[in-house]
Nucleic acid binder design. Structure first.
Lengths: 345, 345
DNA sequence: CTGAAAGCGCTTACAG
DNA sequence: CTGAAAGCGCTTACAG
């Protein structure tokens, strides 16, 4: 029941009957199409309003062959995403953009990391017009998903040569900038640390690191790229070994702020001082990099922009499948805070 | 194109033609209804499989008058939720339950705190069968939402006398337990602190506090319930004033772990020792309560169970609107850690 | 400017 | 055990 005690009307047919016009006229009015007399239009609108009429999306979607819905998938799983502060801002902006463009966002509780996992329900049921892949989806999964024929894009992750649109951040140039900056502060023994899982963003950052090491003629044996650690404790064990060696590193570049924050904690627990003994750089400008003591120097990725571009990409792809392959790599900005200082001599 | 080079089939009609049976038979097969000969059944299933057929949800939903979709709304806004660790686990469990029950989860980017906000798109478009309200929705908003006629429930929030199902945690008894415990540790001057915004969960906790103060014959003038602070700094200013008074509180109960953690930080920055000078209790068992130093004693709310019950409630309500009003209040468990000690004498 | 009608893909009572 | 047919609520070319 509505406020005015009237029964809620759920179909265009009833509205048409009440107004004394055809369902076509009602439909045109509701969609601002065709040329309906202003007077008729107003009458119909009034009736809809009065009876709390809401168009039925199943009816419209069946006819239009659209869902006005975009599916969101996470890798490795949605559990991982919700716990990850990095994604909060992205989700937020994504929702905003999509809602304004007339799309709803459908979530998948699907665990994409399971080897034999079937595809998410919403895909099997054809409930979405497009899919946004958030995270470091493996190539194989992207291909499998692409084969459904539903438009997909990758957000904050990418796979080349798949003709799948993507938007990510330019970790290569970001790392070059970090090394440039560290070298200016007289660092010559720098370590890059990332997790052992496959991650194209981490690869880019590593590649930028290696290129910068070459560019500045830093010693290959003194600059390490550690890529086989499973967690911060493992990372710290290796770093500790290096710190106790004859030519200890003076700076550490951690693949993200979470790792950076944890390393700083472990270093401090062990009696090292940051940045006096060793400088630490992170990536992402997550909230915890600022809460850490000292505050961590990091790379700011404009997450809102990332989401905006992603939203635009998937919508473009849905509404115009002819457009050519799109990819974007956002330039990142260095944020200088207190975890970096001139190299210990 | 599928792997086998065949065109993907998108309707039951084409499958029927290929199989040489009617669409009714295909439909019955797909839905495991009616009595279809095993042989025919297998043939149809094979064809579907081969051509990657997926049923069209708009068609089915139009016919069934269902959406198989549940909308999720947040208060004050989705932005607030994504940044709130407390909700990560709830979202996760909710998704899991709903997906298994055959429902998809539709997200709303809607900002419910805006006074003149329209309802979310998915509601206006009739895209959801039910709505889960997460957070402390004001009574007025709950009523407005309820008037759409779509089943709703409140999760981790509640409004009485509205006949809206809800599941929340029993903050009343939790706080009683906290005070019982503190009294056992010889605390007699205890402060309860909560934010100034309207929040029925906070009200419950406060009520439990007041009841326990009465039960233990604690001094009303020495036990305060502070409910008018906007943030932790404001809270700390008041607490500091009390700590410097003649009969300073020996224990603080903060309405959630976030506030507790921030208060501990501010106390320490100011030279107070926790728990030597003052004990601190939180609620929720959020991740940060464990990361804090000292680790914060808190109240564990089984968020997974909260979500499970919530999922079951909304589904019950959707599938059987006749059921009577349901409400649940989860018993919480005290988690004893290092922020609480015997009262300073 | 307005209406009659087809059809989107599905489910389901009914008939056989 | 299987099929013909109605109808869910909508949009849209077409006719007038």
């Amino acid at each position: 029941m509505l406020e005015n005690g009237l029964k809620r009307i759920t179909s265009i047919k009833e509205i048409a009957k009440l107004a004394g016009y055809s369902i076509a006229t009602v439909s045109y009015t509701l969609n601002d199409k065709g040329r309906i007399r202003a007077e008729v239009r107003q009458k119909i609108l009034d009736i809809c309003q009065k009876h709390g009429y809401m168009p039925n999306s199943a009816g419209r979607n069946l006819r239009r062959k659209r869902n006005e819905t975009i599916g969101l998938m996470f890798y490795p799983s949605s559990a991982a995403i919700f716990r990850n502060v990095y994604y909060a801002q992205i989700m937020e902006a994504l929702e905003f953009e999509l809602e304004h463009a007339g799309y709803d966002l459908l979530l998948s509780g699907h665990d994409s990391s399971l080897e034999h996992s079937v595809s998410p329900r919403f895909l099997r049921q054809g409930k979405v017009d497009g899919i946004i892949l958030l995270g470091r989806f493996p190539r194989k999964r992207v291909i499998a998903l692409k084969d459904y024929g539903v438009p997909i894009i990758q957000l904050d992750g990418f796979r080349e040569f798949l003709n799948v649109d993507y938007v990510t951040s330019d970790g290569y140039s970001a790392t070059e900038q970090i090394v440039d900056h560290l070298v200016k502060l007289e660092h010559r023994r720098i370590v890059f640390v990332a997790y052992n899982h496959e991650d194209t963003n981490a690869n880019q950052r590593e590649a930028g690191f290696l290129a910068a090491v070459g560019k500045h003629n830093l010693s290959n044996s003194e600059c390490r790229n550690i890529r086989d650690i499973g967690n911060s404790v493992e990372a710290y064990e290796l770093i500790k070994y290096l710190l106790e060696s004859e030519s200890p590193p003076t700076a550490i570049i951690a693949v993200n702020d979470t790792l950076a924050v944890e390393l700083v904690q472990l270093l401090q627990d062990d009696g090292y001082s940051v940045p006096a003994d060793v400088s630490v750089f992170g990536y992402n400008d997550d909230a915890d990099s600022q809460k850490s003591n000292p505050q961590i120097s990091t790379v700011r990725i404009d997450k809102t922009k990332l989401a905006q571009i992603g939203a635009k990409m998937i919508i473009d792809r849905i509404e115009n499948s002819e457009i050519t392959h799109q990819k974007a790599s956002l330039l990142a900005e260095l944020i200088h805070r207190d975890s970096v200082a001139v190299a210990k001599s």
